[in-house]
């Protein structure tokens, strides 16, 4: 068994790191809106009004805050969030790549723009067990189809691909929507 040498001692989130990518700060009202909407908008003719009632401001203020969070990148998109698995995309491949650190931003940007990649992140290596620093999620109906997409990524990376693997999921053990909880109410027993 390996020991704490594998432990990552850097920042746990990009919010704590000094990348220019750090998300903007949210104030109490923004946080209240995030908490009220993270499970989905009410399917009501006036959904923002329902949210507004919950957080205690008017609908125009809620929409303005949401617009601002969209602009500054806290919200990536608003819409229907499809369940890929239920829609038949059962081959879920996490592809991991070892690329030169100095090129990870350039290459990550290219991979992240591929239409079949749903997430693309730079994550820390843990040598020697884990040499991969670029992650890209690929969804397809079958493994063969997924593997063809992986080959497409490999071609795009060319010589920068110093090694890669595809980790297919075999079982979903838990999947719940992301739930942020308020600091005050947080804490396990």
């Amino acid at each position: 068994m390996w020991d704490s040498a594998l432990r990552y001692d850097g920042p746990m989130t990009d919010a704590a790191s000094d990348t220019s990518d750090a998300p903007p700060r949210l104030d109490a009202l923004d946080r209240a809106i995030v908490l009220a909407t993270q499970g989905g908008l009410p399917l009501d003719p006036r959904p923002w009004e329902r949210v507004a009632e919950q957080v205690g401001v008017d609908a125009a203020e809620v929409m303005e805050r949401v617009r601002r969070m969209l602009e500054n990148g806290c919200i990536r998109r608003i819409g229907a969030v499809p369940n890929h698995y239920a829609l038949g995309y059962r081959a879920n491949g996490m592809t991991v790549w070892d690329v030169p650190d100095e090129r990870v931003r350039e290459l990550g940007g290219k991979v992240g723009r591929l239409p079949f990649v749903s997430h693309c992140y730079h994550r820390p290596r843990h040598l020697p067990e884990w040499p991969y620093n670029l992650f890209a999620m690929v969804h397809a109906r079958t493994r063969d189809e997924a593997l063809r997409l992986v080959e497409e990524i490999a071609r795009l990376l060319g010589d920068a691909d110093r090694g890669h693997q595809v980790l297919f999921s075999t079982r979903i053990l838990k999947k719940s929507g992301l739930r942020f909880r308020d600091r005050d109410r947080d804490g396990r027993a």
Binding site: L41, I75, R181
Partner: peptide
């Protein structure tokens, strides 16, 4: 179950910390 929800997709670590 075809749609998980209709609403905002938040950037990771918008609120809180995750890994």
């Amino acid at each position: 179950g075809f749609v998980s929800r209709v609403g905002a997709v938040f950037r990771p670590a918008t609120v809180g910390a995750s890994t």
